[in-house]
Write a protein that binds this DNA or RNA. Structure first.
Length: 654
RNA sequence: GGGCCCGUAGCUCAGCCAGGAUAGAGCGCCGGCCUCCUAAGCCGGAUGUCGGGGGUUCAAAUCCCCCCGGGCCCGCCA
């Protein structure tokens, strides 16, 4: 059996071999173009639903119909051509399916030669010119701690980063700190009323200022409603009762915040109620800060404190950021000016609702542009307003400049924005705007990696109302749960290890769910580690690792008796191990984590079957023992690399 | 009103893009397994109108249309 190169994919190799062989037969018999035939066969070949039907299967009726070859002849031809392939052990036909059974002695040798050759690089593809990618993620407003919604963003973005790193791309991670805008102005307003307080000891700054932010925002809302109640006449009874209901909810929210920071809430209540127009004050802070007036630098000051807290949380999650970009710095940069100038010169420039805007109607008439910019066919995109009537810019306008900065600073081929699905429209506007201004390459290579919302059972989260479960809280509860489990088992556990298990459980919970599905996080459920497969993966790896340690990580490759590969569960395990490089390349193509997660669980399940069913180290048949050790090594490599891509901590013991 | 996404076992989810052979995991439930490589494990058992209805097809969880239910978006907010 020939050796495969270091970045080869044994599963893909075997599949191609079969496709090649059967396609040649068909092409020769029908004098058709070989490549075209291969294309078709490749899309038809499948894995049978059950192992007893073999490893690959060809649905003869479909091939027969597509190529116009009689069914009987198709079946016979396929079987005869496949007979010549050494790697094929036998072929049969059931229900017009041509089922292919591989020679596991040979397949096994092929797979383990790959794994042995590649070692810890198994699964890593080779690229002549690796891509340069920027991943912008999290970018939560610097006004409250990360809640589990931003947690989902962090985990997904971290997965993308690790995946790209694993396959050898150059990647840069960026966090866009939105310090310009209404939200930070709310916080800064409360912050200044309270005379710029420092967080009490043992209070993380993001948690503390998050409460001040929520209190300020709730109180302003309350004073607005009270004003409306006063103004409303008695003849508007339905409206009155609706306002009263809203008010009651806000008061309840406020009393929740007050439990945590009573003095601050009282003071805010007193001062804000006294204000004639508190919202005006907030707007004033926003405008002046955006104008970079140095007297308003306290906005940046308090934002930085919150960012410190967020960075600490990310550290606990083992999620990293290479560059922190401040929106106010984007304003300072010349790029925003460049964007505005280009906009004015653009044929798409116009006025919408009386203010400067980019009109997309003409662009959207071209279906081709929609396809190139990945904009859904039926999606109507309204004009993008570039400036307020006072001449200040809007978020998306600044985001055009920021996108250019990301491309330029890293000389990126591709920029990925990990942003919740709710921003799908503004992200489409962003791409259209880039295109309209002539930044075509950037427009086509800007990817909105979207994911669905995270909710709590029966309710959604809100930063403005301090209704959220923070990543810090959840991690801490999970870690203490881990410690309890370990204690029950009589095992010593360090804080650090408990955290590693906890965050891996958290990450796996998120990554095994498709990003396109709404995620409901039930904290009680998340704490039930039994229901979580993160620790299961870690545990399975530990089992394999502890066996390998006992043989000093040495597998006697030359003594392996490959003929023993036909026995289950070793057989299926080898089959699954062969797929890892294929799974990685599919993951790279789709950027979806759940397929990899499912695959790793399968490998772990099979290995646990083997582990329980038979002794490995004490196997008396030397050739079989070494085969099982090779399997153990393969499982360890696959689990380790897989967990690394998913961002789970790889532990040596637990 | 228009658009995007989701609906698969009691619960959490794979499978859908490239249609095929008895629809898969995990959790939970019931019953077993530690003088033996870490029992966060393993073995056995029960569990489904693939949201509903049409259509295309030899064949539909998968493709097309309609409907129902849930989420999100349609701002001189971000």
């Amino acid at each position: 059996m020939g050796k495969l190169g270091i970045c080869e994919n044994p599963y893909g190799y075997v599949k191609d071999l079969i496709v090649e062989t059967t396609s040649s037969y068909i092409a020769e018999n029908l004098t058709k173009n070989l490549d075209e035939v291969k294309e078709v066969v490749k899309s038809f070949i499948e894995e049978p639903p059950r192992r007893e039907f073999g490893d690959f299967s060809l649905p003869a009726p479909r091939l027969s119909r597509v190529f116009g070859l009689p069914l009987k002849q198709t079946i016979e031809g396929l079987i005869n051509s496949l007979k010549k392939v050494a790697l094929v052990d036998r072929i049969d036909e059931v229900n017009n399916y041509v089922n292919i059974y591989l020679n596991y002695s040979m397949l096994s040798e092929l797979v383990f030669n790959s794994i042995r050759e590649a070692g810890l690089n198994y699964g890593r593809p080779c690229f002549k010119k690796p891509k340069r990618v920027v991943v912008e993620y999290i970018s939560a407003n610097p006004v409250h701690p990360l809640h589990i919604g931003s947690g989902r963003n962090a985990v997904l973005g971290d997965f993308l980063y690790r995946l790209f790193k694993f396959v050898g791309y150059d990647v840069e991670r960026r966090y866009y700190v939105n310090d310009v805008g209404l939200q930070t102005a709310f916080l800064a307003f409360g912050y200044s009323i309270l005379n710029k307080p420092k967080p009490p000891i043992n209070f993380k700054p993001d948690h503390y200022y998050g409460l001040i932010y929520a209190a300020t925002s709730i109180i302003i809302e309350i004073s607005k409603i009270r004003k409306k109640l006063k103004e409303a006449g008695m003849d508007e009874l339905p409206k009155l009762s609706e306002l009263q209901r809203d008010l009651d909810i806000l008061l309840a929210d406020l009393s929740r915040v007050k439990e945590r920071i009573p003095k601050e809430v009282d003071k805010l209540m007193e001062e804000i109620t006294r204000e004639e127009n508190p919202e005006g004050k907030v707007n004033e802070i926003m405008r002046n800060y955006e104008r970079l007036d140095p007297n308003y630098n306290f906005v940046r000051e308090v934002s930085e404190e919150v960012v410190k807290g967020i960075a600490e949380t990310l550290d606990k999650l083992n999620v990293g950021i290479d560059v922190w970009d401040w929106e106010s710095d984007v304003i300072r940069s010349g790029v925003l000016k460049e964007v505005l100038e280009k906009a004015k010169a653009s044929p798409y420039y116009g006025y919408y609702k009386g203010v400067p805007a980019l009109m997309f109607r003409d662009l959207l008439n071209d279906e081709n542009i929609k396809t190139r910019l990945k904009i859904p066919k039926a999606l109507e995109v309204p004009p993008l307003i570039l400036m307020r009537s006072d001449g200040s810019t809007l978020y998306t306008t600044r985001d055009i400049a920021y996108t250019l900065i990301k491309f330029r600073n890293f000389n990126a081929d591709e920029v990925i924005n990990v942003i919740a699905v709710e921003q799908i429209l503004s992200q489409a506007q962003l791409r259209l705007a880039l295109y309209a201004l002539g930044y075509v390459r950037e427009a086509e290579n800007l990817i909105h990696y979207s994911y669905e919302m995270v909710n709590l059972p029966g309710m959604s989260m809100s930063g403005r109302r301090a209704k959220y479960v923070t990543v810090d809280e959840l991690l801490e509860s999970m870690a203490s749960k881990v410690k309890n489990v370990m204690k029950d088992r009589g095992v010593e556990v360090t804080e650090e290890q408990a955290l590693k298990i906890a965050r891996s459980a958290f990450k796996f919970m998120i990554l095994s769910t498709s990003p396109s599905k709404t995620l409901v996080v039930d904290v009680g459920r998340a704490l039930d580690l039994k229901q979580n497969s993160g620790p299961y993966m870690q545990y399975t790896y530990v089992r394999a690792k502890s066996i390998l340690d006992k043989v000093d990580n040495h597998v006697d490759w030359n003594s392996i008796d490959y003929s023993k590969s036909v026995k289950e569960p070793v057989k299926t395990l080898i089959w699954e191990l062969s797929k890892f490089p294929e799974v990685i390349s599919k993951t790279l193509e789709s950027l979806q984590p759940e397929g990899l997660a499912t695959y790793l669980i399968k490998v772990a399940d099979l290995y646990n079957n083997l582990y329980d069913a038979e002794p490995i180290l004490k196997e008396v048949d030397k050739g079989y023992r070494e085969l099982k050790l090779a399997v153990t090594y393969g499982v360890a490599v696959v689990l380790k690399n897989g967990m690394e891509v998913l961002g789970l901590d790889v532990l040596d013991r637990m």
